[in-house]
Simulated scan of single mutants.
Amino acid sequence: MRSLQIFSLALACVLNQFATPASAETPVRIVTFNAEILTAPGIRAGNLEKYRWDIARRAQFERVASIIEVLNPDILNLVEVTSKEGVDLLIEILHEKGLTDLHGYHVENNDSYTGMDVALITRFEPVEVDGARIRTLNSEENDPTWRQAFPAVSRKGNKYQATTSISRNAVYLMDIDGHKLGFLGLHLKSNPSDEYANAKRSAQAEIAKRVVQQEIVSRGYTPIILGDINDYDPDVPDRDETRDTATTVLSDLKDFDPSKPGSELFNVAKLMPRQADRFTSLWDRNENGVMDPFDVMTMIDHILLPQAFEPYVKRAFIFHSIDLTTTDHLAVVVDLLLPRKVAVPATAAVTQ
């Protein structure tokens, strides 16, 4: 009996030498992508249209799906899709391509003029909060919860006090191998060269900071902010050095908790070594459908990660192989290797 126990122990040691150990890291690819007024055939969601005819709309969905197929994201923050039908159609095409582990989550945002929403496509199942896997936070005029006042100037030069909400946003939480991640997908006020737009966007950033604190951090989740911020990061020079921010929007978002020293988040763009690659938006000045040297190419889409996650970043880049018939934005991609916090069971001891 004793000999059998010794033999079993020796055999277990030999087998353990050749066993493939469980990976201590979980790869996670996060992408934010503005698909530019992605409207499902037969749907009228807002007052802006990229394509009027269903055949052209369907072709845009096919191109967007091909981009997603190539990028193969684990978490995709999808900006400017205009309806649940649009998300469902995109998922249908992706499933036909074999990406059946991707699932879409849509919530109707509150931009009644454009109809644009922030949605989610992911391999991970979001955590349910108040009966929803994805939520949008908005306050009407008489509810200051998610509203912010800001000074504005009328076209006649008169100063007045305005208020705003973030009409296009999405909040979703995920538990990934022990990491509790809370995402705030944003699409803030456009035009970083306009005084009124800058004031409104600055107010929206203040709301975003409250959302992070109250809806993500307070629930025990680590925040990640991503999307079309529509502003420049003064800490990360982009391709066009002639365009500096007139706001503190990016600085405010990264330092969402001023009571603590330093910024809580960092921009993954700082890990992109080539400055010439740092552009996510293209203004086609002559509207010829191609990228010309005199077109404006700037970085206004961003992914902001927790400072503690910087060692986990394997790579960050912008996917530039997107034509203007699909969208005027480019996808921002970051690859993470998250150390697993879930304990791996030890090899069972041999019974004596």
Rank of each mutant, 00 (worst) to 15 (best):
59 A>T: 10
156 K>R: 14
29 R>I: 10
56 A>F: 13
136 T>G: 06
195 E>W: 03
140 E>T: 14
200 K>C: 12
49 E>P: 00
95 H>Y: 00
37 I>N: 11
115 G>A: 05
146 W>V: 07
337 L>F: 13
120 L>Q: 00
108 E>S: 09
283 W>H: 02
207 I>K: 12
204 Q>V: 12
116 M>A: 14
46 G>R: 13
288 N>H: 03
235 D>K: 10
39 T>M: 15
39 T>K: 07
183 F>A: 03
272 M>L: 11
178 G>S: 05
75 I>C: 03
352 Q>M: 04
26 T>M: 14
70 V>M: 06
80 E>V: 04
290 V>D: 01
121 I>A: 14
133 R>E: 03
127 V>P: 01
35 A>W: 04
210 R>M: 10
254 K>T: 11
224 I>V: 15
278 R>I: 02
194 D>A: 10
160 Y>S: 02
147 R>Y: 04
35 A>E: 04
225 I>F: 09
2 R>N: 15
87 V>A: 07
335 D>M: 03
210 R>N: 15
253 L>Y: 04
82 T>I: 02
43 I>R: 05
242 T>K: 12
327 T>A: 11
91 I>E: 08
311 P>V: 13
144 P>I: 10
159 K>M: 13
210 R>S: 14
138 N>M: 09
96 E>G: 15
180 K>S: 13
301 D>N: 11
324 L>A: 00
154 S>C: 04
210 R>Q: 05
199 A>D: 03
288 N>E: 04
140 E>H: 05
16 N>S: 10
328 D>W: 02
322 I>D: 09
188 L>W: 00
237 P>A: 10
258 P>S: 12
297 M>P: 01
331 A>E: 02
30 I>L: 15
158 N>L: 08
165 S>A: 15
273 P>E: 06
311 P>C: 14
303 I>F: 04
268 V>K: 03
311 P>G: 11
351 T>N: 12
91 I>V: 15
204 Q>G: 05
348 A>R: 15
63 R>M: 11
195 E>M: 05
112 S>C: 03
117 D>C: 01
147 R>M: 14
6 I>E: 12
227 G>E: 01
10 A>H: 04
128 E>R: 05
70 V>P: 06
131 G>Y: 03
341 K>V: 01
240 D>W: 06
5 Q>K: 07
118 V>P: 00
318 I>T: 12
152 A>C: 13
280 T>Y: 09
235 D>S: 13
279 F>L: 07
35 A>P: 07
33 F>P: 07
210 R>I: 06
340 R>Y: 12
134 I>H: 03
48 L>G: 01
63 R>F: 10
191 N>W: 05
21 P>G: 00
272 M>Q: 12
35 A>I: 08
302 H>D: 11
197 A>L: 01
247 T>A: 05
205 A>W: 06
229 I>Y: 02
141 E>N: 10
309 F>S: 03
234 P>G: 09
342 V>A: 01
29 R>V: 11
157 G>S: 03
225 I>N: 07
26 T>I: 13
82 T>K: 01
279 F>K: 06
165 S>W: 05
256 F>Q: 10
338 L>V: 09
165 S>C: 06
61 F>R: 12
349 A>T: 07
139 S>E: 10
49 E>G: 04
283 W>K: 06
161 Q>W: 00
192 P>D: 07
53 W>R: 12
264 E>F: 01
340 R>K: 13
272 M>K: 08
3 S>M: 15
274 R>N: 02
287 E>M: 06
80 E>I: 03
1 M>P: 00
282 L>P: 00
